[in-house]
Structures are given as structure tokens and as C-alpha cells.
Amino acid sequence: MNVFRLAGDMTHLLSILLLLLKIYATKSCSGVSRKTQELYAIVFIFRYLDLFTDFISVYNTFMKVVFIASSLAIVWCMRFHPVVRRSYDRELDTFRYFFLVGASFALALIWHEKFSVQEVFWAFSIYLEAVAILPQLVLLQRSGNVDNLTGQYVFFLGAYRAFYILNWIYRYLTEPRFTRWIAGTSGVVQTALYADFFYYYFISWKNNSKLKLPA
């Protein structure tokens, strides 16, 4: 575990905590894409199937359980919480996300480390995670105004990806025969999707103004 990987995991965790805090404190999920949250729940469940077969570390197991539980809790709140569900921007969150699931699974059938159930699902989860933010970005762009917590949520989620890239570069330079073709390629694609958002986030931060995305 290097410092970049730890920073990546912590910003990832922080992003999820920020989202839970926003929903809990404001009893509102306005500005949050339920489709993105459902995709993340699928991502974590299919990637962490190895919880039952491989033990890596207490840290690893703990984080996996936290990611699965928190993503399911967010989806549950947005679907079933009597107050929270009323603020869901249903009419703005119309991204056709089954397309993303299908395309990710098809790609996983073609490109994987090994042709086994667990490995194909692992690759599927990597590809799906790379594009899972799209419904959220589309929702933010449609709603125009972004509240602070939601903006910070997306910012930290993007920071997590950027730190993982630094982590792979570091590992490539320090570990013999280190390669992560599937995760690395997907990670670069995923991080690139945030570029536009980052640009406007930094402008609003610099001007000390509310984050607004152009229509």
C-alpha cells in the first residue's frame, strides 16, 4: 500500500460519506442520480465476489463491506425512504443505463484476465465503474445549479480516480512486472470523464462562486 493508493481509497470513502451526510442532513437527494448509485451498487457487488473466496487483508475486507453496504444504503434511501425519495429528480435522471450495463458485460466477455465467472464479473465491474458516473454528470448538467455537497461528492470521486492512476504509475516504477491493463485503461477513461467537471469546479472554487455547469 503506497500513499497514492491510500489517498485514493480515502477520497473514495470521503465521497461516499459526503453523499450520505448530504442525504441525512438535508433529508434530500436532489441533484443525486439514483441510476449512478445503482450502477455503483452493481459494481461493488460483482467486483467483491472474492470476499467469499480470497482474503487479502482486514483493511481490504473492511473497505469492500463498507462500499457494498453504503452504496446499497444510498439506493435504499433514494427508493424507499418516505421523505428522501420525494426529492429525487426523476424527470432529470433519464440516462439509459441498461445500455452501459450491457456494453460493459459484452466487453468483459471479450477482454478479461481469465475466462471464469469471477474474472469476467471482475472485468465487468471495472468497465461499468468507468462509465457509472455518466448519469450523474448528465443530471448535474441538466439541473445547472449544483449544491455544495453534491459538487464535493463528485469532486472527491474524481480525485479518487486520479490518485489511483498515480498509484499505478508508482507501482509500475517500483514493482517488477507490475501491469494493470484492464484496470489501468478503464481508470484513465473514467478519470477523463471528470475532466470537464473538474474544469468548472476549479473555476467556481477560484471565483468563490456557486458551481454551475453550462447547459
Binding site: 472474492d50 480470497d54 462500499f67 494493470r180
Partner: peptide
């Protein structure tokens, strides 16, 4: 196996 052991990241 080697392949699975590579998944040490989250």
C-alpha cells in the same frame, strides 16, 4: 491463483 491475487486493489 496468480490472476485472482492481482486483485489487491479496491
Amino acid at each position: 491463483s496468480d490472476v485472482v491475487a492481482e486483485h489487491d486493489e479496491l
